[in-house]
Amino acid sequence: MKVALVGIGKIARDQHVPALAASGDWELAATVSRSGTVDGIAAFTDFATMMAERPDIPMVSLCLPPQPRFAYAEAALRAGRHVMLEKPPGQTLAEVHALETLARTMGVTLYTTWHSRMAEAVAAAKAWLADTVVRRAHITWREDVRKWHPGQDWVFEPGGMGVFDPGINALSILTEILPAPVHVTAAVLEFPENRDTPIAAQIGFSGGVSADFDWRQEGPQTWDMEFETDKGPMALRMGGNRLELGGKPAGGVNSIMGEYPALYARMADLVRNGQSEVDLSPMVHVADALTLGKRVTVAAFNF
């Protein structure tokens, strides 16, 4: 099946293009970007032109920032194309609900992807927690925005979500593996004095769950989730790719390169079965944190 990749930035080059190149289900047939291209692939700078000239492409994968994404997704769905959304799936919950309704009306597939759920050790962690009582859990998700979003001011603009852009990856794992749902009860949000979205957040949830998100960490990056349960301690590290039980390694890998191939395999299954998959539970936690959060102003941030 042919796919058009829209938004040829860092995440597209690092993850989507290699995943599609290795896929037995999909063929990258076109790209849409103001400046980015992929060698050997038909390149368009205008989405409407691509849609008009390439009726042979049944699926559109949107990798552009969340702020403009709704208009692209809506146009693709109205044209009868299947749509795959990079995370976060939109800049608001209402936008994605509207897209879900439209996809249903048009009889096409909409897939809100959460790549960290495809991390190597997530399924094993979910199975291990299924029959436990989780007494406490803490997430430490600290990385360097300059490394992962170099010069990309959109992450600090309204709708860009700030530190929740990476933090939502942790929340996607949390909502996947916990045996019982939790909700946000309090948050402290640190906003640089010159920015519109937070650069750090500390969040409290029901059920003894807490989270520490920070976009200012240099050097080694930290993507850890630690759980205290009635069966003992369990931890996910390396963004859900390594599992620890009782403080000892229990499986996984030190790479995230298997996540996006799994997303595209899932998208192929959804299209073949005429289904959609729209899960907004990670984004609900972000919206609640922004609603309940106490704002603290911190030093200006510049790339």
Results as ranks from 00 to 15, higher is better:
G246N: 12
V182R: 07
V209H: 06
V32C: 13
H97A: 14
G167D: 07
A268K: 05
I173P: 07
L77Y: 08
G90E: 05
V296I: 13
G204V: 00
V188M: 09
A125F: 03
D224H: 13
C63N: 15
D144M: 09
T37I: 13
T112M: 01
K126S: 12
E228N: 07
L110W: 03
N241E: 10
E176C: 04
W141P: 05
L28V: 04
V271C: 12
W141D: 02
R242W: 07
L236V: 01
Q217M: 15
F47L: 09
A125C: 15
M59S: 14
M283P: 05
L62F: 07
P18H: 10
N241W: 03
F301L: 14
A125S: 05
D14G: 04
P89S: 11
E100Q: 14
S35W: 11
A22Y: 03
R135F: 10
D39E: 15
N273R: 12
N241L: 07
R216H: 10
R146C: 10
A170T: 00
A211C: 06
T185S: 14
M51A: 13
M51H: 06
L110S: 00
D165H: 15
V184G: 05
S172W: 02
D14L: 14
Q152S: 12
L243T: 08
E226Q: 15
D279W: 03
M161A: 15
I203M: 06
W114Y: 14
A76K: 04
V134Q: 04
P66S: 14
P55Q: 05
W26D: 06
K126C: 05
R69E: 06
S33V: 09
P282I: 04
W148P: 02
F205V: 03
R135V: 08
T132N: 09
G208T: 08
R242M: 15
L20V: 06
V278A: 00
A48H: 12
L290A: 08
A30K: 04
P249T: 09
M225W: 04
A289H: 02
I199S: 10
P89R: 02
A186P: 04
V145C: 06
Q15M: 14
A287I: 01
Q221W: 11
F303S: 15
P181L: 09
D153R: 15
E190L: 13
D131T: 13
C63D: 09
A265K: 07
P88C: 00
G159R: 03
W148S: 08
G80C: 08
H115M: 11
E226T: 15
Q91V: 08
R135D: 12
R216T: 15
H138V: 13
A103S: 10
V3A: 12
V6P: 01
